[in-house]
Design a protein around this nucleic acid. Structure first.
Length: 301
DNA sequence: ATTTTCCCCTGCCGGC
DNA sequence: TGCCGGCAGGGGAAAA
């Protein structure tokens, strides 16, 4: 469920509370959470350790420990990390693990679908990159993610552009929501072959990905369903969706009815007029007109 | 190497 | 009301 903006929101909140804290207790309630070790060993290695900082790459959180080791977390579809100043008033539904800290505060990993995972990472960059370098590419909000690097990754690829920007090795952090929203902003049909994008389209897409993710972060993520931040609060991005989950409604830019289909095995939403399947040769005048229309849409919101 | 399919889990919603 | 199929913001393994 949580994509880059949701994970970043949680990271910031947990950082506020946990910087410099020490883990005083570790309870693993669901052994499936811990991969690949046994829960008792996992708990033993964490308990008593001081936290340095909490980092994020793509949708992974890395809680750095005092000696260079780290706790890695991935929330997958329905995972939540809930911070409470003390013991929760009532048992947290679907709790899978609970960390206690030296100030009495706690963090509960709750997750009804149980897809989320936690890993204890050994110290050392080599070990770290062995485990993660293959799977996760450049973070979408880092300076290393550029239009040029994106274009290089798309060259000669035949898969749908949406499948490619969902590939965490190409760009880390984009999920189903922000993929739809970014492709709409860039006026690119989600089924276009990645290698068919023009340079201008790649630049638009890069800019659109950054733009939508930044907006998602600024409003605390999208909470149309289960996502909650570390305080149990909701984000506001669901009210700013342009096409995602809006099939049958008018496109905010041209009023054509938004369509829904399946691309890359995921529910996908797009405007059939603004996002044509054929690469579009459009003049500067059209681009300007589009910019103005978007300004109006923003103002309406 | 790349692309596609299947699978992991549980909850929820709409249709019959 | 109750059952059933389909779908859900994730990603990894295996197959094509």
């Amino acid at each position: 469920m949580p994509e880059l903006p949701e994970v970043e929101t949680i990271r910031r909140q947990l950082s506020e509370h946990l910087a410099g804290r020490t883990i005083t207790s570790t309870r693993v309630l669901d052994p499936l959470l811990v991969d690949p070790e046994d829960p008792a060993d996992f708990a033993r290695r964490l308990t008593g350790r001081a936290l340095r900082e909490i980092r994020r790459t793509g949708k992974y959180l890395f809680i750095e420990l005092d000696d260079g080791e780290a706790l890695a977390l991935h929330l997958r579809m329905t995972g939540q990390l809930l911070w409470t100043p003390g013991e929760p008033d009532e048992p947290t539904p679907y709790a899978r693990a609970v960390l206690g800290f030296d100030d009495g505060s706690m963090v509960t990993f709750a997750d009804p679908r149980r897809f989320g995972r936690a890993w204890f990472l050994p110290a050392g960059r080599a070990a770290r990159s062995r485990a993660w370098g293959r799977r996760t590419g450049v973070d979408a909000m880092s300076p290393g993610f550029t239009a040029r690097s994106l274009g290089a990754s798309l060259e000669r690829r035949t898969a749908a552009i949406k499948a490619l920007i969902l590939d965490q090795r190409i760009v880390a952090g984009v999920g189903n929501i922000y993929a739809d929203e970014a492709l709409f902003r860039a006026r690119i049909h989600p089924r276009r072959p990645g290698g068919s994008l023009t340079q201008a389209e790649v630049r638009r897409l890069h800019r659109a990905i950054r733009d939508r993710l930044r907006m998602g972060i600024s409003v605390g993520g999208a909470s149309f369903d289960r996502y909650r931040d570390a305080h149990g609060g909701r984000g506001g991005m669901q009210d700013l969706f342009l096409v995602h989950r809006r099939q049958g409604e008018p496109c905010p830019r041209c009023r054509t009815i938004i369509e829904k289909g399946v691309v890359a095995q995921r529910g996908t939403y797009w405007c059939p007029r603004c996002q044509p399947l054929e690469a579009e040769v459009q003049g500067e005048a059209d681009v300007e007109a589009q910019g103005e229309a978007e300004v109006k849409v923003q103002a309406a919101c």
